[in-house]
Simulated scan of single mutants.
Amino acid sequence: MAYNKYKPLFRNLNINHADDISLSADYFREITKGLIDSHFQIVFEDSILGGAIIFPASDKKAKASDFRLPFDYSTLDKKYFDADYLQGIDELTKINNQSQEVVLATIDKNIIYFHCNQFSLERSFYSNSEGNVKLILDKFFERIYLNQYKGLIIDLRYNFGGDLADLNFFLNHFVQSELTIGFSKYKRSNGMLDYSPWIKAVIPAGKKEKRKLLPIIILADRFTVSTAELIMLSLRLLPNVKIIGETSWGATGPIGATNLFQAGTFKVPGYLTVYTSSAAFKYIDGRIYEGVGFPPDVSIPFSSEKITDNIDIQLEYAISVLGR
C-alpha cells in the first residue's frame, strides 16, 4: 500500500535540504503514476523545484506510439467560412492566462459553425469586455433553431475545458426538457472509502418554447478535455447529434469549488498545489470514461499530411454530411 511504503520515506526527508526536496518530487511522481484521474496535476511552487509539474495523464499519452502535440485549427479553418464570420475575444476573462475566444461562422450559407477555445463563456457573457463575446453568443443561440440552416457544427477540438458552470449555461440553450447525463459520486468525509452513493447528474430544462433543434455534428480530438467533454457527452444524448474525429482526453470527473466538496484541488502553501477532480462521474450508459476518453461516432484521425495541404479532413467530412 502506497501510504505504508511512502510515509516513512517522507518522514526521513529534511525540508531544509535541497536534495531532499527534489527527492520528495520523485516520490510524488512514483505514487501518482498509476492514477486514472486525467485532471490530476501537482504544480510545485518551491523555488528549488522551479515550478516543476507532475501530470500523469499527459506523461502516459506522451509515451503512446501515436503521440502528437495539439493542433490549433483556427487559422486553417477560416478558408471554409463565409466572409461575414464573427470572431470575439474577452481579454478580461482568463483561464490559466488564456483569454476566452469564440468564432461564429456560416459555411456555404447553410451550415452554422461555432468554436470556442475554452469554457468561460458565462463569465465572458456577463463581463464588461469589449470583445463582442456576448454579441456572438446571442447570435449563436438565436440561430440553432432556425430552419434556414441545414445543421450546426460545434468544434470542440483543442478545447481544454474550464468552468463547470458553463455546463448549464451552454446546454440550457439546447436542452428543452430535463436531461439526466449520468451520475456523480462524492467524498463525504476524510475516511478513505467514505463516498456518497451515485447521484443523478441532471441538466435542467432551459428553453420554455418547444422548437426543433438543428442536426448537430461535434468535432472532437484528443485534446477535447474536461468541461468540453461533459458538454459533448450531454449533447450526444439529444436527437440527431453525432461526434466526428478522435477519442477525447478522458477527464470527465468535475472540478468544483474547494469549499463545496470534501475532495478536489488543494494547496500546501509555499510548496505545491494539487489539481484533482472533486467527484467521480459515470455516464448514462453506466461506463466511466475517466482516463479512457469518449469515442466518436465516426473516427477520422488527425492527418498531418492533410494539414500540410491545408485540408481539415474532419471539418470537410462534417460539411459533407450536413450538406447532403
Rank of each mutant, 00 (worst) to 15 (best):
S320P: 03
L237G: 04
F183R: 11
L135K: 14
K109R: 13
D84I: 14
V241Y: 02
I218E: 00
K79P: 04
Q87F: 05
I288A: 09
S299H: 12
N110T: 08
F81M: 09
A52T: 06
Y317F: 11
H115T: 04
R68Q: 07
L76M: 11
L213E: 03
P204I: 02
R11K: 15
S304I: 14
I53P: 00
N97Y: 07
P56G: 02
R123E: 05
K185A: 02
L219M: 12
S22F: 09
E316T: 14
L23A: 13
I95P: 00
E246N: 10
S74E: 12
R123S: 08
I95S: 09
T180I: 15
D285W: 08
D166P: 04
L92F: 06
S177V: 11
T308C: 09
N259F: 14
I311Q: 07
P295A: 04
E122Y: 07
G161T: 03
D155C: 11
D166V: 12
D77I: 15
L35M: 11
G250N: 03
A18K: 14
D221R: 08
L104W: 00
L35I: 14
D108G: 13
A25I: 02
T308P: 02
L146G: 05
I153T: 04
S303K: 13
G131D: 01
Y289P: 01
V274G: 06
I311Y: 05
G245S: 09
I112G: 01
R188F: 10
T227K: 06
E290F: 02
D312K: 10
L76F: 03
I144N: 05
I107Y: 00
I95Y: 10
G191K: 11
I42P: 00
K212A: 06
G182D: 06
T180R: 15
L233A: 15
A52Y: 03
A165P: 04
F281L: 11
A201I: 08
K200Q: 11
K185Y: 04
I231V: 13
S320D: 11
G250A: 08
V298W: 03
I300K: 09
S74W: 04
G323Q: 14
I284S: 12
C116P: 00
Q100V: 13
L260Q: 09
T227C: 07
I288S: 10
L235S: 08
D108C: 13
W198R: 12
I216C: 06
R236P: 00
N190F: 13
D20A: 04
F261A: 12
I154Y: 03
F40C: 00
S304Y: 10
